[in-house]
Amino acid sequence: MKKKPLPTGAGVLASTQPLPEYGTVPDLSRDQRLEWYRMMYLTRKFEERSYQSYQTGLIGGFCHLYNGQEAVAAGTFAAITDADPVITAYRDHAHGLMRGIRPGPAFAELYGRATGIVKGKGGSMHYFNVEKQMYGGHGIVGGQTALGLGLAFATKYLGEKKVCFCYMGDGAVNQGTFHESLNLAQLMKIPVIYVIENNMYSMGTSVDRHSAPVELYKRALGYDMLGVRAEGMDFDHVRQVSWTLAERARSENLPAILELMTYRYRGHSMSDPQYYRSKEEVEEYRKHDPVEILRSRILSEATVNEKDLEALEEKVRKEVQEAHDWALASPFPAQSEIYTDIYA
């Protein structure tokens, strides 16, 4: 069965202006689709292993898991290229892994080891992989929205025709810096897409308790900006709408808000007892799992069979276990590292 092209408005729930017509996102090859599925599956397994490591005391500090939200990072990344800069907040494991951080250095960072992707100086919240244009990993809610603006500004200044995807949680829409950034982006025509990963909770405060307008994409209205709300659990839907906004940003230097409706299965951070929501609610959302949705679709396209997919998954699980073991066997940083990387 051949894959049917998606309508350009697939997954779009609402928008402040009519969506521009840039047509259908170019098809991914069979191998490309499998690779994105592999990345989503890897992220899921990496974080499940991280969850266990946290429970057994291997990870200190904060650890914010992306379980349930994988289609957001994967679908948006698959709409742009590795030359386009991306930046996010502290729920950053997926963005790091999907922009080239190997599971070994990713685990090693969680465990505070010298072999960590940022040498044990950043931890869970500060994954960076600049080689693949992944600019962090930022700890202050909303603080990265101005940085994303600056990355996009720089690409325009240099005439590169790129777009910056800047990710944030729904709680960040209430930070002043975000609103300053929105105004500057539209005023100065800067090619930045603000992806609101709306997982319905700002830590433990649900959207209706933290935002006057519960439709967060409408924050764009105050800035004459395009705001779009779309379904965030389906890789293909996310990819299509992201591609439309990215093309618009590249060709017209126009920013946008892309609110993607998603859900996180775990607590805000690992220490969250989740008194603010029911187990039933979580179970309900787990029925629409982004990893499962893409898996079923790939199988239905009949380009790969169940057996091959299971082999791929087995390989990923093995890779995750080996990466974990490698990270645990890695040394802690030398004391002298305290004083390096402060000044260039």
Binding site: A146, L151, G176, T177, L184
Partner: peptide
């Protein structure tokens, strides 16, 4: 005007813009 830029009164916004631009090499 591409290199001498009037900002609205948004210190956090334009300071952050500069940091992001510097991270990218400007």
């Amino acid at each position: 005007p591409d290199r001498i830029i009037d900002s609205p009164i948004s210190e956090s916004g334009f300071a952050g813009l500069c940091i992001g631009a510097a991270m990218y090499g400007l």
